[in-house]
């Protein structure tokens, strides 16, 4: 079994120091928070050099150990897709704002559907993300922050949830 890093271990370390995890080590979320609070840098085992980034999922989520989580299985039903939905009060340029952000991140719009009802619009896009810059979490965060909720709201969800809920 790998090392187990808990708050107790962090507490005895000098503040501002560095902790290098051995392969297979587990660091608890509380320990990670304690490390952050005391300015201790936690280096993952075999910390990802920028060149080997795209194989694994989010490293941005707090406390998430990318190295321990297996990558999503290869997609049997074609490439990995997400659903991008935008809802809000209609005004010019919205579609262009959304699609240019997708293009910037290297996403590929596969299908699009837009409806305007009175003053409100709903846009649904299917975006293929196999070739995006960064990972899913980064894509989601960037897309969801392009607009203020009182203007219009963008949400990004992995396609699988719709497949599970609406297809037998």
């Amino acid at each position: 079994m790998g090392d187990l890093i808990t708050v107790e271990q962090i507490d005895v370390m000098p503040a501002g120091g560095q902790l290098t995890l051995t392969p297979g080590a587990i660091i608890t979320p509380a320990a990670r928070d304690a490390a952050e609070a005391r300015g201790i840098t936690v280096l993952e085992a075999g910390a990802a050099a920028p060149t080997q980034a795209p194989t694994v999922a989010p490293s941005r989520t707090a406390g998430f150990r990318a190295s321990e989580i297996p990558a999503a299985p290869a997609h049997k039903n074609g490439p990995e897709q997400v659903i991008v939905t935008a809802v809000g009060k209609n005004r010019p340029r919205i579609l262009s704002e959304i699609t240019s952000k997708i293009a910037e991140l290297n996403g590929n719009v596969m299908d699009i559907n837009q409806r305007i009802l009175q003053d409100y619009f709903t846009t649904i896009m299917i975006v293929e993300i196999s070739g995006i810059t960064g990972d899913f979490a980064g894509f989601k965060q960037t897309m969801e922050s392009i607009s203020q909720p009182e203007d219009y709201r963008v949400s990004v969800q992995h396609e699988k949830v719709f497949q599970y809920m609406h297809r037998i």
């Binding site: 187990l4 587990i26 660091i27 608890t28 979320p29 999922a57 989010p58 989520t61 707090a62 406390g63 998430f64 150990r65 321990e68 989580i69 899913f136 979490a137 989601k140 949400s155 990004v156 969800q157 992995h158 699988k160 949830v161």
Partner: peptide
């Protein structure tokens, strides 16, 4: 040890 981070990541992935 990894339960909470993994659940949080799934939450964000599927929006539920």
């Amino acid at each position: 040890g990894n339960l909470v981070p993994v659940a949080t990541e799934i939450e964000s992935r599927y929006g539920i």
